[in-house]
Simulated scan of single mutants.
Amino acid sequence: MVERAERLCQTRGLQFTRLRRDVLAAVAAEHKPLGAYDIAERMSAPGRRVAAVSVYRALDFLTEQGFVHRISSRNAFVSCGHDHGEGAGLVFLICRTCGGIDEMTAPAVESALDQTLAGAGFTPTSRILEVEGECGACRGRGDAGENA
Rank of each mutant, 00 (worst) to 15 (best):
G100A: 13
I39L: 00
C80Y: 10
G136K: 07
D38Y: 00
A76I: 12
R21Y: 09
I39N: 02
A51N: 14
F122V: 14
E86W: 07
F122Q: 10
L19H: 04
E134Y: 01
E134S: 01
R4Y: 11
V55K: 07
R4V: 13
T97Q: 10
T116D: 11
T97V: 15
F77I: 09
S73H: 02
P107F: 06
G99L: 06
A144N: 12
I71S: 06
G35D: 08
F92N: 13
R20S: 07
A144W: 15
L59Y: 00
I94K: 04
R74Y: 11
R48D: 13
Q15T: 07
L34F: 09
R18K: 12
V53F: 13
A112I: 11
H82M: 05
D114A: 07
E130C: 05
I128W: 00
A148P: 01
L117R: 06
D22C: 03
R7Q: 13
G99P: 03
S79H: 12
R12W: 08
E86T: 12
T123W: 14
E30P: 00
V55L: 13
R20W: 08
L93C: 00
T97W: 11
C138W: 01
G85Y: 04
E3I: 04
L24V: 06
G119D: 04
F16K: 00
D143I: 13
I101A: 14
G47M: 09
T105D: 10
R42P: 05
L8V: 05
F61C: 05
E103P: 02
F61D: 08
E30M: 02
A112V: 09
R18C: 05
V2I: 15
D60V: 06
T125K: 11
A137V: 13
V27D: 12
P124F: 05
